[in-house]
Computed example of a mutant assay.
Amino acid sequence: QTTNTINFQRMLLQLEDSSRSYRWAQTKEGKIYLLSIGKRNQKINFRLKNHSLQLTTSDGGTMPIVSQVKDFELEQLNEKIYLFLYFDSGECYESNLLLEKYEKEEK
């Protein structure tokens, strides 16, 4: 249990690191994704593959962020996003991601 707690906290630190300049956005269909503002609005999606939660970028990059994951959910509520992680062990962790919503600049 301690390992999953530590891994979850590390993942949150990676996602919320201000140097990454992540913002969140939604497609018209409601799918939540991240934008890396520092990299010309590079689109970043969450993906579960082989029990590893990964971030995949629009330019083809992949970064595993936490392992031993059975499933995950991203939900938007009151202009915030919430991440739910379900580990193989049966544990579930949730957090409000401390990321700003992406607002398209008016030109």
Results as ranks from 00 to 15, higher is better:
residue 2 T to E: 05
residue 2 T to R: 14
residue 2 T to C: 00
residue 3 T to R: 15
residue 3 T to P: 04
residue 6 I to H: 12
residue 6 I to L: 15
residue 6 I to Q: 15
residue 7 N to P: 02
residue 9 Q to V: 00
residue 10 R to H: 07
residue 11 M to R: 05
residue 11 M to W: 06
residue 12 L to P: 04
residue 13 L to N: 12
residue 14 Q to T: 05
residue 16 E to W: 01
residue 16 E to K: 03
residue 17 D to F: 14
residue 19 S to W: 08
residue 20 R to D: 07
residue 20 R to T: 05
residue 21 S to K: 10
residue 21 S to L: 08
residue 22 Y to L: 09
residue 22 Y to I: 03
residue 22 Y to E: 01
residue 22 Y to C: 03
residue 23 R to Y: 11
residue 23 R to M: 12
residue 23 R to H: 06
residue 23 R to N: 07
residue 24 W to E: 01
residue 24 W to N: 00
residue 25 A to Y: 10
residue 27 T to I: 00
residue 29 E to C: 01
residue 32 I to F: 14
residue 32 I to S: 15
residue 32 I to A: 13
residue 33 Y to P: 12
residue 33 Y to K: 12
residue 34 L to C: 13
residue 34 L to V: 09
residue 34 L to F: 11
residue 34 L to I: 03
residue 35 L to Y: 00
residue 35 L to R: 05
residue 36 S to C: 06
residue 36 S to A: 11
residue 37 I to F: 06
residue 38 G to T: 10
residue 38 G to W: 07
residue 38 G to V: 05
residue 38 G to E: 04
residue 38 G to D: 11
residue 39 K to S: 05
residue 40 R to E: 04
residue 40 R to S: 13
residue 41 N to R: 09
residue 42 Q to M: 13
residue 44 I to A: 08
residue 44 I to W: 07
residue 45 N to Y: 08
residue 45 N to V: 08
residue 46 F to M: 02
residue 46 F to V: 00
residue 48 L to V: 09
residue 49 K to M: 13
residue 50 N to G: 02
residue 50 N to C: 03
residue 51 H to P: 04
residue 52 S to G: 00
residue 53 L to G: 03
residue 53 L to R: 02
residue 54 Q to F: 00
residue 54 Q to W: 06
residue 55 L to Y: 09
residue 55 L to P: 14
residue 56 T to Y: 13
residue 56 T to G: 13
residue 57 T to P: 09
residue 58 S to R: 02
residue 59 D to R: 12
residue 59 D to M: 11
residue 60 G to H: 10
residue 60 G to K: 07
residue 61 G to D: 11
residue 62 T to R: 02
residue 62 T to C: 07
residue 63 M to L: 09
residue 67 S to T: 09
residue 67 S to D: 11
residue 69 V to L: 06
residue 69 V to T: 04
residue 69 V to C: 03
residue 71 D to H: 15
residue 72 F to L: 12
residue 72 F to C: 09
residue 73 E to S: 15
residue 73 E to H: 10
residue 73 E to I: 10
residue 74 L to V: 06
residue 74 L to G: 13
residue 74 L to F: 04
residue 75 E to F: 10
residue 75 E to G: 14
residue 76 Q to G: 05
residue 77 L to R: 15
residue 78 N to H: 03
residue 78 N to W: 07
residue 79 E to W: 09
residue 79 E to D: 15
residue 79 E to I: 01
residue 79 E to T: 09
residue 80 K to N: 09
residue 81 I to V: 11
residue 81 I to R: 06
residue 82 Y to C: 03
residue 85 L to K: 15
residue 87 F to W: 10
residue 87 F to G: 01
residue 89 S to M: 08
residue 90 G to C: 05
residue 91 E to V: 06
residue 92 C to R: 02
residue 92 C to F: 00
residue 93 Y to M: 06
residue 95 S to C: 15
residue 95 S to Q: 14
residue 95 S to V: 13
residue 95 S to H: 12
residue 96 N to K: 13
residue 96 N to T: 11
residue 96 N to M: 08
residue 96 N to F: 07
residue 97 L to A: 00
residue 97 L to S: 02
residue 98 L to V: 01
residue 100 E to N: 08
residue 100 E to W: 05
residue 100 E to L: 11
residue 101 K to Q: 12
residue 101 K to P: 02
residue 103 E to I: 10
residue 103 E to K: 09
residue 105 E to A: 07
residue 105 E to R: 01
residue 106 E to L: 01
residue 106 E to A: 02
residue 107 K to C: 01
